[in-house]
Amino acid sequence: MDLNRRTALGLAAAVMTPVSQTVAPPDPAETIRLWPGRAPGGDRVTVTPRVVERSTDPAFRDRFAQYTTEPLLTVLRPARPNGASLLLIPGGGYKWAVVDKEGLDCARVFAAAGVTCFVLRYRLPGDGWAAGPDAPLQDAQRALRLVRARAAVDGLDPARVAVLGASAGGHLAGMLTARADATYAAVDAADTVPFRPDLSILLYPVATMADPFVHAGSRRELLGETPSAEAIERHSLERMDWRDAPPVFLLHAIDDGAVPVENSLQLLSALRAAGVPAEAHLFEEGGHGFGVRLIEGRPAAVWPQLALAWAARRGWITQV
């Protein structure tokens, strides 16, 4: 199915908005707490949550959330929803989770195409959670289940729930997509529905935990200074069992100096070997962490259109 003209025009306008506006748009008012009580395994957690603003330009915001203790979803509902939903998992090297660049900014672009978006603020592995490196994955699994469990109430299709992860968020989204084992004990009825997405979009993902292509900062935050060979194996996406996983879309800039393009190339080989439908787009330039705002005038600026066209061919979205 092709995107129609109205959808294409709305998408183009959304991509341009962050660079043409003079005041940053307000945050969506709707949020959803992931857990009915405290997040699991927090008895030894003593951190104090904070959100830091890095931008000095009133036209856009550039925040990151650190020391999160109450993970949540921020909901961005489109004017003309088409039934599809998207869980967005921003990056931050597992040291923090960005709020805007790979979260709300990207969500606004997909919402312009009729997609209901849920931006995840997740717990971090170094903050003392009992689950350690699985703490972020607990939040991702719970988030996907909540989106799917709420679908009927929200007027959404529970069989059209995708995930989009960027950088370290791409690693987390990849873990969510590949792993079939639940990482926490069920807490309510939402945990009876599947947690794997129907489609997975990975932007410049941190895929491998192994040298020489690892993003060292993400590995250190996730697995510690001297991780075991078993831990590296278990958390490297290209070494996981991808059989029966949903289709995957990969995007990477060849000149990425932070997360080498080999992360996506190795993962693509693993997906092909496992028979997972996959599409990959490599761009000569773009660097790392560009989201939708930092690539104006560059070839990679078309990535949202490419991702939506791919998703439409797979039946995730229809004409608006």
Rank of each mutant, 00 (worst) to 15 (best):
A131D: 05
G114Y: 00
R234S: 02
I254S: 09
N4P: 02
A135W: 07
G83E: 01
A143G: 03
D57C: 09
A113C: 07
G128A: 09
R272W: 07
A185T: 15
P78S: 07
P136R: 05
E221C: 11
E53N: 10
T22E: 05
A79T: 15
E102N: 06
G128Y: 11
Y122W: 07
L203H: 03
N82R: 14
V147T: 09
L199D: 01
G257T: 09
H252R: 05
W316H: 03
A180S: 13
L88T: 09
R121W: 03
P205H: 06
G169P: 05
W96M: 11
I201V: 15
T74Q: 10
G169E: 06
E285P: 04
A131P: 00
L164S: 02
V248I: 11
T74D: 11
V292R: 06
V51F: 08
G155F: 00
P205F: 12
Q138E: 10
T56P: 00
N263L: 06
A14N: 05
W310D: 01
L86I: 08
P125H: 09
T56I: 03
Q266M: 14
V248E: 03
D256C: 12
L76R: 14
E30K: 13
D211F: 04
E221P: 06
T31R: 15
D43R: 15
R239S: 01
E30M: 08
P205L: 05
A143H: 06
L250E: 01
P136K: 12
A135P: 06
G315C: 06
A300W: 00
T192I: 08
V51Q: 12
N263M: 05
D198S: 10
A312P: 01
E262P: 01
P194N: 13
A270D: 02
P197D: 13
I254E: 14
P18R: 11
A190T: 11
R61Q: 12
T46Q: 13
R160Q: 02
R142L: 05
A79S: 13
V47C: 13
G155H: 03
L72A: 13
A229Q: 14
G315Q: 14
S200P: 01
L34T: 00
R33G: 15
E53V: 09
L267Q: 06
P260V: 13
E230T: 10
G224S: 00
A135N: 10
W129Y: 11
G42Q: 12
A84M: 03
G170S: 08
R108G: 05
